[in-house]
Computed example of a mutant assay.
Amino acid sequence: MNEGMNSITPILLYSVALLLSFFVTLVLVPQAKKIAEYVGAIDTPNHRRVNTECVPSMGGVAMFAGFIISLLAVAVFSLKFDLFKLDYVRELSVLIVGCLAIVGLGVIDDSIGVKAHLKLMIHLGIGLYTACMGLKVDSIYIPFMQEVQLGVFSIPITVLWIVLVVNAINFIDGLDGLAAGIVFLTSLFIIYYGVKNGHFLLGLVYSGLLGSLIGFLFFNFNPAKLFMGDSGAFFLGYIIATGALVQEGGTVETNIWVPVLALGLPILDFLTAVARRILNKSYFVPDKDHIHHKLLKKGLSHKTVVLFMYCISVIFGMAALIVSNGKAYEVFPTIAFLGCFVLIFLNMLDIFKKT
């Protein structure tokens, strides 16, 4: 294989994965809507929801199918170009089984409901399975210091990371196009970093995810014709959390710090929600005080809030890329800026005040 073919093949395969997952998802979304209506997976308006009409809620099934079909098809095709190694089979197998489990949980929750504490236990179990099967954080790179080996803490930290991201995406899925759009932007930043550093499998996973998100967003922008439901939120959270762990030869800096910072907004919303529930002693009781709810109460329209939160996600994504370079004169000002921005933003929203 010549050098030109080596340089162009990964980008070509990423493009194929994106387009294939896009078209498959686009075709399957109407079918997912019919299934949701048949099994009764309908989001009905209530005191906590923003939607004023009943909307089917199982878009995650279409995204999952589009993602898996494109990933498997391109993986088989890439064998011809010697870009797919034996280790990839194991890693993708773990990823797919984890996806099946967490999407299955989401489908059940969308259809008949699952108690919050039971969902948390299953999330922990799926995270434990993923980590024990080898997709885990073995070490953490601390800028300007040596890499810290996690040892016995590797598995619990990985489990907590997966559970954190899955629930963060679920928590921020409160407005039309919000969660899908934020994951879309996060995927863009991670793909850019992966391609820049030559991580083939990382780029392939997130390219497939990107295509399925685009296909779904056609139906999910305000006014939404279909919600992703817990099946979608769990799927997106799991892939974003574990996708960065399936790359070959990458540093933990690539695996963790880029998605951690790029997901800064949903993680921030999740952590403040948990803190608020602890303060109010309502641990498993959902509220209407998330960041998007607070912005709506400031008088912003539905679409304006979504676009504003997209802009904030872009800020976090750019910060992730800057910090990933590891240059002192870039990292410290960026972290200082983010810290000040977060404090001012949360203070403006009175985020810990229950309304």
Rank of each mutant, 00 (worst) to 15 (best):
V97K: 05
K196Y: 09
Y14G: 04
N347L: 13
T251Q: 11
I96D: 02
L236S: 10
L120G: 11
K115Y: 08
G237V: 00
V246S: 05
I112K: 15
V76C: 10
D289S: 14
G194I: 00
L185N: 06
T251E: 12
N167H: 10
G203A: 03
V163T: 07
I108D: 07
I122E: 05
G264Q: 04
I42L: 14
L261C: 06
D176L: 04
L268T: 12
V342A: 12
G4H: 09
F77K: 04
C99I: 07
C54G: 10
N167G: 02
N347C: 11
D87N: 15
C311Q: 04
F67N: 01
L245C: 06
G237M: 02
L83T: 08
L204P: 03
Y88A: 14
D230P: 00
K281C: 05
K33C: 10
N220A: 07
F64Q: 07
G326R: 12
I69F: 14
P56R: 09
I35N: 07
F316Q: 09
I112A: 15
F200Q: 02
D176A: 02
T355D: 15
L12C: 13
F218A: 11
K353P: 03
F218L: 12
K136F: 01
K297S: 11
P45Q: 05
L92Q: 04
I214G: 06
F218Y: 15
H293A: 04
I256A: 05
I322E: 06
I35M: 13
L217P: 00
A273Q: 06
I315L: 09
Y238I: 08
G211S: 09
F235K: 08
V103K: 12
L185S: 09
A65V: 12
I112N: 08
N325S: 13
T186H: 01
